[in-house]
Computed example of a mutant assay.
Amino acid sequence: MTHTATQTLSVVVEREIPHPPEKIWRALTQPHLIEEWLMKNDFKPVLDHRFSFRGDWGAVDCQVTAVEPSKTLSYTWAAYGLESVVNWTLTPTKTGTHLRMEQIGFRPDQQQAYQGAKVGWQRFFASLEKVLARGD
């Protein structure tokens, strides 16, 4: 398989979560809840809304590209030369929700960002599950 300059890598995290999509959607879209599991932010679940995630290490510039309440959410994620997109997909199951996060757009020369995202999203998901388990 030949690697071309246009070929990008993705980070995918999938979880079965024992909560309804509506509840997970709130945790993905309400700024005070996002802050608890991800970062400080000025997010709004509104198409084309520009926002940022802020951490001790810096900030991520983002723009909402798709919003379908309790189903899908997408936004651009740009930081330190990384131009990527984060896609969230919520699928109802018998016991709760199948939550899938895919961050696409890592270039082959962005191994550090790619490896960092792989580790980071696992941690973020663990924090998200704690926020959900705690209840509203």
Rank of each mutant, 00 (worst) to 15 (best):
M1N: 12
M1K: 08
T2P: 13
T2Y: 02
H3A: 14
T4Y: 07
A5T: 11
A5Y: 06
Q7A: 08
T8W: 11
L9I: 03
L9Y: 13
L9C: 09
V12N: 08
E14R: 10
R15F: 10
R15G: 11
R15A: 10
P18R: 02
P18V: 03
H19F: 11
P20W: 07
E22P: 03
E22T: 08
W25M: 08
R26N: 07
L28A: 04
L28T: 01
T29A: 05
T29R: 01
T29E: 03
P31T: 02
H32M: 07
L33I: 03
L33C: 03
I34Y: 01
E35W: 01
E36H: 04
W37V: 04
M39T: 05
M39A: 15
N41G: 00
N41L: 10
N41I: 08
D42L: 08
K44V: 11
P45G: 03
V46Y: 06
H49D: 07
H49L: 03
R50V: 13
R50H: 14
F51A: 11
S52C: 10
S52K: 15
F53Y: 14
F53V: 05
R54V: 15
D56T: 09
D56M: 05
D56A: 10
W57S: 08
W57Y: 12
V60R: 00
V60P: 00
V60A: 00
D61M: 08
C62K: 13
C62Q: 10
C62A: 13
V64S: 02
A66P: 00
V67D: 11
T72F: 01
L73V: 06
L73R: 04
L73W: 03
Y75S: 10
T76N: 09
W77Y: 13
A78E: 13
A79M: 15
A79W: 10
A79E: 14
Y80E: 15
Y80F: 03
L82Y: 02
S84Q: 05
V85T: 15
V85G: 03
N87R: 15
N87A: 05
N87H: 14
W88I: 09
W88L: 07
L90W: 04
P92N: 02
P92L: 01
P92Q: 03
K94A: 15
T95I: 06
T97L: 11
H98L: 12
R100G: 04
M101L: 14
E102H: 00
Q103V: 10
Q103W: 11
I104R: 15
G105K: 07
F106K: 10
F106H: 11
R107S: 10
R107F: 04
P108R: 06
D109S: 13
Q111N: 02
Q111F: 06
Q112C: 00
Q112N: 11
G116V: 00
G116D: 05
V119D: 12
V119E: 15
G120I: 07
G120R: 04
G120D: 11
Q122Y: 06
Q122G: 12
R123V: 14
R123T: 15
R123M: 14
F125M: 15
F125T: 13
A126D: 14
S127L: 14
K130R: 14
V131K: 09
R134N: 12
D136E: 14
